[in-house]
């Protein structure tokens, strides 16, 4: 197949992901990396590099608006960023070391990626979202209280300003460290983990959790340096992917207003399950644990 087919394929593929993301609430990176690993000839290193850049660019594009609306909480970001910057870089280093230094390393990465994706699948089908979690004054931990991590935004559906508080900050900080490592290692955006953690564990309203998650994803940006410094960023992969997801997300935001989100969400969750299983099978095939079946 001629070389030009693959950038065109990536553009169309990421355009579709971009359209689906705002409709389903599933981040682009988490679909892109496992599917592109299975569907394209690019080595998993190049796919992870592009996946991470896609996740960061999507976040950079939406965060300024969310900050101005009061939805993304910069105080929470300031506490979490010093942890996530370090762990996402460590994750990137470990991911590239595994695929380059170990014999059959890329198959170990595919196997681990499949397992992580199935974990994401489980989180998505089991976690319940709480629109406005109740955080009583006595629930607020001393760190959040001392730092004054509170916020407010205007909620059109209620036609009033909603104020909120945060709880369990120390536990959240540890969990964000782990999430940063996984995000850096596999080139995934971490919205799938950030949102339930902020919403269910730390008591942020769902809109604040989603917006602050986007802000936190920008702290994964230094992990791009790992991929750049190892030559794992190629314009032929990155440019069509970024253009596709950027244009697709704009189309998707308009479609989201007219389509039934629940149906698309379940469709995406099904695709995610399939991608996880395919990566595990490819990893096990490459390592010789099972015969060649796909």
């Amino acid at each position: 197949m001629d070389w030009w087919f693959w950038p065109v394929f990536l553009f169309v593929f990421t355009l579709l992901i971009g359209i689906i993301s705002p409709v389903s609430g599933v981040g682009g990176g988490v679909l892109y990396v496992p599917l592109a690993t299975v569907l394209t000839p690019f080595n998993v290193d190049f796919i992870r590099g592009a996946g991470l850049i896609m996740a960061v660019v999507s976040a950079l594009s939406s965060v300024p608006y969310l900050l101005r609306k009061g939805l993304a909480n910069i105080r929470l970001f300031a506490v979490i960023a010093p942890i996530m910057v370090i762990t996402s870089v460590l994750g990137g280093i470990v991911g590239l070391w595994v695929s380059n230094a170990l014999p059959n390393g890329k198959y170990y990465v595919k196997l681990l990626l499949g397992i992580i994706i199935l974990l994401v699948f489980l989180i998505m089908i089991t976690s319940k979202r709480v629109e406005f979690p109740e955080v009583r004054d006595e629930d607020v931990d001393p760190w959040s209280r001392k730092l004054g991590i509170v916020g407010e935004w205007y909620e059109p559906s209620l036609d009033r300003i909603v104020q909120y508080k945060i709880k369990n900050l120390p536990v959240g900080m540890i969990m964000f460290g782990v999430i940063g490592f996984i995000a850096g290692m596999f080139g995934l955006g971490a919205g799938w983990a950030n949102v339930p953690l902020l919403n269910l564990v730390m008591g942020a309203p769902i809109k604040v959790a989603t917006a602050t998650s986007m802000l936190i994803i920008t702290a994964n940006a230094p992990a791009i340096g790992i991929y750049l410094a190892k030559g794992a960023v190629l314009p032929v992969v990155v440019v069509p992917s970024i253009l596709g997801i950027t244009i697709g997300a704009r189309i998707g935001a308009k479609i989201a207003e007219i389509i039934r989100p629940a149906f698309v969400r379940w469709l995406v969750i099904g695709v995610l399950f399939l991608a996880g299983v395919l990566n595990i099978i490819k990893g096990l095939e490459g390592l010789g644990y099972i015969p060649h079946i796909i």
């Binding site: 070389w3 000839p41 690019f42 080595n43 290193d45 590239l96 380059n100 032929v236 992969v237």
Partner: peptide, 10 residues
Amino acid sequence: ASKYWNESTV
């Protein structure tokens, strides 16, 4: 690039 983009970065 298209001949080798399926290989590891190294």
